[in-house]
Amino acid sequence: MRSINRITSLFERKKENILSIYFTAGFPELSSTENIIAALQKSGADMLEIGIPFSDPIADGPVIQQSNKKAIENGMTLQLLFEQLKTIRSHVNIPIILMGYLNPVYQMGIENFLQKCTDIGIDGVIIPDLPAEIYKTQYQQAFHKHNIFNVFLITPKTKPERIKYLDGLSEGFLYLVSSSGTTGKDTIFHEEEYQRINDMKLNNPLLIGFGIHDRASYENACKHARGAIVGSAFIKALEKSSSPENISSFIHSLTTPILCN
């Protein structure tokens, strides 16, 4: 019998303030990946998005671009990432998503890629330059066979009928891009746009990402969605230090409630 996807379990168990953290595999050091995963789980992150580095990350701002470049220079490859993650499920139980651009996945071959994801215990995939139409006709069947979720992005500018279409294809959750832009830019919250999307009563829960960088933006995102995704701000923290202490203090800087200000 097929086990329940960890992403589904997470959203069933936790109804608010879900915190998902993105980082680039092989950054800042080639061997950083496993230590960062362990430290993030210990510090209370609910879900992880591991970036597969790519030479031409067109949807990313300067911080994530730099981390991709460094990771490739360090020698990170998709093949090596799978090797590093081989035994990760012996001590990590939070959902893990792989996020990256299509070309490295395409070169590995989708069947091979998904089989490796299954063997390791990867729960979902986000590929920003794999559009819904191509996914549906060429990839969906393989994802279903392996019970790997493919998560789609929507923006406040996405038209209602398209949001419904993407909601029908996305599994686990929908990734709501805070403002239509590349990663790491300051978020501009338009309350009415979020309200409009929430009023649509979608099948998937929403997580808000792009530009979530501190406690205020995290809390604000959590008001409008089930939680938030933090990427560039975490990469910046890793640039300073990837020690477990520093990772822990970064996570707490987002999640510790302000009691008085």
Binding site: F54, S55, D56, I58, I72, T77, L78, Q79, Y101, L102, N103, P104, V105, Y106, Q107, M108, D129
Partner: peptide
């Protein structure tokens, strides 16, 4: 060999790992 860059599938100079 075939790959995806700048929005289309085409022939691309790339590493085995798919880096352009």
């Amino acid at each position: 060999r075939p790959g995806v860059l700048h929005g289309s599938k085409t022939i691309l100079m790339q590493t085995e790992d798919g880096q352009v």
